[in-house]
Design a binder for these strands. Structure first.
Lengths: 213, 213
DNA sequence: GGATTAAATGACTTGAAAGTCATTTAATGA
DNA sequence: TCATTAAATGACTTTCAAGTCATTTAATCC
């Protein structure tokens, strides 16, 4: 019944990251357009007005989410990919299972779904996502593929399209899980998709006549 | 300056499909949440109130778009896929290039992007899309793959995951084009992705030692 | 041609959420 | 301890779009 402490505290340093955390959760759940700042504020434990002390607009808040949470997460995957050495047949599965893991964690998949949905209405968003996330990732994968081609390990062809061949199915499975959560009864397991696709793509889906591998 | 004809005409039969056409354009452009019924009405050449003579809510209008425009388009691809006979190595490329064509046409890709973005906030939407579009498509492709496996043409493994392997890269390329239109300078060509991926997946990305194919 | 029907209109109501700001109050420091 | 600063509040204003409905008028039918 009594109020033991002060009604609120001044925490200039801690607020922004708490707000970003809350915003990420609400954006991921509802999408940008339908996310309510009141909900974000409540989740962050502040009043709506306080959000405006740190972020000018709803869009600025979203940009902060991408910059502070998504870009670093992608950066970690990227860094891991850069380090990968050895023959492509060994690098590819590690890349794929690493990506599968990254997509399972955090809310990266949910934010990705959101960006896909709202990129057209918020072009700035699309640019950030392209420049900071998708572009570097694709470039890194394509570079590995090109190197493997130069060594004669990988079939000729546009390395960027080969990169699509490699990661496309994983993206599809991720989006399937995101979009049809609660609708489809049998969501694909990302790790299983990564593993089976790796084998299919690298070795070929078609079996040589009479082969029983 | 003068008004030659009547201010409007009664066209009970023609209105719904015109409204659906306009709605598809606006939804594809702006996404569901940000699409304005005023804009849809203007594009359809009617007043906003007239929309409500034929559709109860904005969501009902979207459902009509899916039912009248998207499902038939998908149905045509499906029908083509059902007919496909012969060895899998011949069926697959036709399936892929057919899908590439379908995804290029109309605004199917834009609507797909929209559904991905807003499925979580409009669960009914996700269910329709799953039951009417993605489910049947995946099932048809998986069935062909399973048949090929039974004939010993295709590597063992979950046929649904093989279906992801087959069409995932095409979906990725499509979404890339949709999301980064106007941002990326080098959108992937769907037909090229379909062709190169088909060859890579079926024959294998890794070259046998000393092979120069 | 006049009466009747219902397609179509568009001004209006309603509700919701982004953004504002005068006020409150926790923290600081002289 | 008390004056000062600025973090935080939350009621308020503003804006915008979905949905309504009394009115208008094109079409139909006797």
């Amino acid at each position: 019944m009594t109020e033991p402490g002060p009604r609120w505290r001044r925490r200039k340093e801690a607020r922004p990251s708490e707000m970003i955390e809350a915003a990420m959760a609400v954006f991921a759940e509802r999408g940008f357009a339908l996310a309510k700042l009141d909900d974000i504020a409540r989740l962050a434990g502040v009043a709506k007005g306080s959000l405006y002390l740190y972020f000018d607009t709803k869009e600025a808040l979203f940009r902060a989410v991408v910059a502070e949470r998504v870009v670093p997460a992608v950066g970690r995957v990227l860094a891991a990919a850069q380090v990968q050495e050895g023959p492509f047949a060994e690098v590819a599965p590690r890349l794929l299972s690493g990506a599968a893991l990254a997509l399972s964690q955090d809310r990266v998949a949910a934010v990705a779904r959101m960006v896909i949905g709202e990129a057209r209405t918020f072009p700035d968003l699309a640019r950030v996502w392209h420049d900071e996330v998708v572009g570097p990732l694709l470039a890194a994968v394509a570079a590995r593929i090109a190197a493997a081609q130069a060594r004669g390990e990988v079939r000729p062809g546009d390395p960027r399209i080969h990169a699509f061949s490699l990661v496309g199915p994983l993206l599809m499975a991720t989006l399937y899980r995101e979009v049809f959560a609660g609708v489809a009864d049998d969501p694909p397991d990302l790790a299983q998709v990564a593993q089976q696709h790796d084998r299919s793509l690298l070795q070929g889906l078609i079996l040589p006549e009479g082969d029983v591998t």
